[in-house]
Design a binder for these strands. Structure first.
Lengths: 327, 327
DNA sequence: CGATAGCGGCCACTTCCTGACCTCAATGAC
DNA sequence: GTCATTGAGGTCAGGAAGTGGCCGCTATCG
């Protein structure tokens, strides 16, 4: 541990956990002379990390944001937060970052000691499922296991539930993970069927890396995403919702915020556009706006809203008959 | 860049991005002889990172999970995923990890180059806000800014909207962030009022670190969390919702997931309990369950649901008169 | 003005790093 | 079994680097 490189790393870690450090404190903690500390700081600067220094009484060192990201030194708790946050990000809460979230997640998981993995498993029970889409929840463990197999070029075994519900055991050479819409797909070469296949991750269970490595084959498609797009002829039924709301656009925007786009149509009228997988969300939003509205489409939304309205009135009427209670 | 420590770091990063590496490939990438690579691997092992090796044809090196977390080397995309995931975690999606999520987030944000911060800002527009609680959304930037000021012991200026709506400018010595229930509080010494105060983060705006450092004072309480608990004598008006649902508990749980607790009352009956700030959320959930229900309390919820029902029926009736359109 | 703290040159000493060469031990293909 | 491949590790010599102590300099704050 009396190494130079380990000391550089420790210095970096110190600078990351507490921004401001007096020089003597640092040299003390690292067990070197002040002169050597200055040289270590120089070393960091040469490596591209911008360490700024303040002179005079109460001076010290400070790590400023630079051009490159330094290696992050995190403790156990932070690693767990990292893993859980990345898992949420990978589930598609924010469009466009799923792939990198999975990459980062595999990195973190891979180097994570078993004790931390156990703690994450314990926390999984309280994790928020993919409520933002009403799509099937993907098992985060499966996601990372498959991602690691892709990255490490290791053959993979899993059981797969086909569209008709039949379970089959698969043995594949994983090629790439693709996040399309709200779903994850694995593009892989099926060793039993001797052909390329795409698998929906939410239909896949018990992935286990076999440890057998392989030379990647050439995918007979431009791109893994193209392959998946071609494979899924039947797109999942999504709704394009359009509603005219009898309220100022600003008011509607305040409620809808980011879940849809609001176009102003006049003093007291606006158009609300959303693309969703389920109708609960638009129903709730137009309910929460608290103003009259007209449903332009889809007609399913009209039926959906009518059902809610019927049920809500029936229930509250029954409630009134029994005499409303106080809270 | 021809440094030993930087090479160690690069080696670690390579081992993190692609698990399996043949020796010659590694020594080639690092620009050293095979012998030196072996020595570098040894160095890593001495630092506690478990590098396992496979001999023979097609052998290579591989980083196994160890006792300590190695410094994470992430690229731009991954860093963004990290920041966004951590932001979600800090917003309280999973109970108990908020504090460490914020700590990790400040680390990441602090060392992040400005160009990445801009990209995160750009992504914020599509971020899912804290829907899981219907509480006010906390600005993630404010959260990290305040957390950094706490950590770095730097005085902080911000404007604060008191309970009565009045805006005041504050100048404080930040002490600690506390996550209580669904809210974040800042415990700080108010330099204008010369006393300790706790501030709700969702009422705080434009935090700006002044750069003035200070010696931390002793908080007149056991613990920052205790201080906040003592300070909030008047709890915010929250609703305790109780609803009897005529559906199996499992079905209700699938919809409600963790936003409330579901008690089984029989084959086809269960009780739903929630504590919320607004009534939109429970209204939406019982709507989405799709079954009949009885509202036990509060009576405001009955009124609320009745209003939704009335409006929904009025609107769909009007829609029918105009002739329902196809999607 | 004086105390504090970072900056950086110089120097001598020590440590370690490196590449080359060697033998040995696994491992998988033929 | 044989053989090529690949990692492990010892040794050695030359060179590169890290280290601590010394110095004078400058910036900053009270």
């Amino acid at each position: 541990m009396a190494n130079t490189s380990s000391r550089t790393l420790r210095l970096l870690s110190l600078l990351q956990t507490h921004r401001y450090w007096p020089g003597p404190e640092l040299s003390d903690r690292l067990g070197v002379s002040a002169r050597t500390l200055r040289r270590d700081i120089d070393r960091l600067r040469e490596l591209g990390y911008p360490v700024v220094a303040h002179r005079g009484v109460d001076g010290g060192y400070q790590l400023a944001p630079g051009a490159a990201l330094p290696p992050l030194v995190v403790d156990d708790e932070e690693a767990i937060a990292l893993a859980i946050g990345l898992r949420m990000a990978a589930q598609g809460a924010v469009a466009g970052i799923e792939e990198s979230a999975v990459r980062a997640l595999t990195k973190v998981i891979q180097v994570m000691p078993p004790r931390l993995r156990r703690r994450i498993d314990a926390l999984r029970t309280v994790t928020v499922p993919a409520a933002w889409g009403a799509g099937p929840t993907i098992d985060a463990d499966a996601l990372t296991a498959v991602a690691q197999a892709c990255r490490d070029e290791e053959r993979l075994r899993f059981s797969y539930r086909a569209r008709d519900g039949e379970l089959t055991a698969r043995h594949v050479e994983p090629h790439r993970l693709v996040s399309l819409g709200r779903r994850w797909y694995l593009v892989a070469y099926d060793l039993t069927r001797h052909d390329w296949r795409s698998f929906r991750l939410d239909r896949l269970a018990d992935p286990g890396s076999t440890g057998e490595r392989f030379r990647p084959r050439d995918l007979p498609a431009e791109d893994a995403a193209d392959f998946v797009r071609a494979a899924i002829s039947s797109m999942p039924a999504a709704y394009d919702v359009e509603v005219l709301v009898h309220a100022p656009a600003a008011k509607v925007r305040a409620v809808v915020s980011r879940w849809g786009t609001v176009e102003e149509l006049g003093e007291d009228r606006c158009r609300l556009l959303m693309t969703v997988d389920g109708l609960e969300w638009p129903a709730m939003l137009i309910g929460a706006v608290g103003a009259d509205f007209e449903i332009v489409g889809p007609s399913e939304l009209t039926d959906f809203v009518r059902e809610w309205g019927t049920r809500f009135l029936r229930v509250t009427a029954a409630d009134d008959r029994r005499g409303s209670r106080t809270s």
